[in-house]
Simulated scan of single mutants.
Amino acid sequence: MNEMELLSAEQMDACPEAWNDSEKALLPPQLIDWRDKLCLRFSGTLKNEQLLYIGEPARVVIRFEPELVAVYTSNFRKDESHNIHLQLELQGGVSVAEGELQQLQLLVKQALDSRGRHYLRCSGCGQTLPKEYLERLEDAAVCRRCVDKRYQQI
């Protein structure tokens, strides 16, 4: 994946690879209710019954299991060849038996706030992107598309 490609919700289903269709479990009605309410509150995208992505590119991934709901932030890193790689970092979880929807909403909000600090606005087009997608050009954060446009004009 090069710098210009953003990971959409559809692309994130491959990360991590262990989350495949064979692991899908039927969710109890309580979790379906929690999932649907989170989807509405945070404008999420359902990948399948168990995965909810929030943001585009996904900033937070929520995985629903029959006994636990886990919240992850998506982190991007560049390697020495400037390829971007996705890593998911566990932020916490809520037990279905002992937890409440409000606890899960707070955890998701904290994860979004935490990940949001790593996003910057492109000074060229105004798009908000993970800082890993931006370049420095004349002391300004600029996305790859704007850098390319600028050099095409020269």
Rank of each mutant, 00 (worst) to 15 (best):
D36L: 01
L104E: 01
Y119Q: 02
L40G: 04
C146V: 14
C122Y: 11
R59V: 04
K47N: 07
M1Y: 05
H118D: 11
C146T: 15
N20T: 06
C15H: 15
D148Y: 14
K37H: 15
L27W: 12
G116F: 02
Q127M: 05
Y53R: 01
K109V: 08
T128W: 08
I154M: 15
L51T: 06
S43L: 02
R35E: 07
R63K: 04
C146M: 13
Q30S: 14
D113R: 12
K149G: 01
K109R: 13
Q105F: 06
I62R: 02
R59L: 08
E23G: 11
R63P: 00
Q127H: 02
V142K: 03
W19K: 05
Y72R: 08
P66C: 09
R41T: 03
L120F: 11
L134A: 01
E65S: 11
Q105Y: 05
E65C: 09
E135A: 11
R144C: 11
L101V: 01
R150G: 12
R77P: 04
D21I: 09
Y72S: 08
N75K: 15
L120Y: 10
D139N: 14
W19N: 07
Q110L: 07
L38I: 03
L38M: 03
L120P: 04
Q103F: 07
N75H: 13
L68K: 15
T45Q: 03
A70K: 14
L6A: 08
P29Q: 07
V108C: 12
C15A: 14
P57G: 00
F42S: 00
Y53L: 00
A58Y: 01
L137G: 04
G126K: 03
L107A: 10
Q153D: 14
F76L: 15
K131E: 13
Q30E: 15
Y53P: 02
E3T: 13
E89Y: 10
K24Q: 06
A140M: 09
Q87K: 09
L129V: 04
Q50V: 00
W19P: 03
E49C: 00
S22C: 12
C125E: 12
R121D: 10
M12S: 09
L6M: 13
R150A: 15
V94Q: 02
K109T: 14
P130A: 13
G92A: 02
R150C: 11
D79G: 07
Q30T: 14
L40Q: 09
S8T: 04
V142Y: 11
E65W: 05
P16Q: 08
A140D: 06
A141L: 09
I154F: 11
K149P: 01
G124W: 13
I62M: 04
R115E: 15
I154G: 12
V96T: 05
D79R: 03
A25F: 07
L134S: 01
L112A: 03
T128K: 07
R136T: 08
N75M: 15
E3P: 08
A58Q: 05
P29C: 00
A25Q: 13
S22R: 10
C15Q: 14
G126D: 11
M12W: 00
R150Y: 15
P16R: 12
E5I: 07
E138A: 10
Q30W: 06
Y133C: 14
G55M: 10
G124R: 10
Q102K: 09
D139T: 10
D139R: 15
L38P: 00
C125W: 12
L26C: 12
D139G: 10
P28S: 05
L112I: 02
L129G: 06
D36R: 02
G44D: 05
E10K: 09
A111M: 00
R59A: 05
V96M: 03
E135W: 15
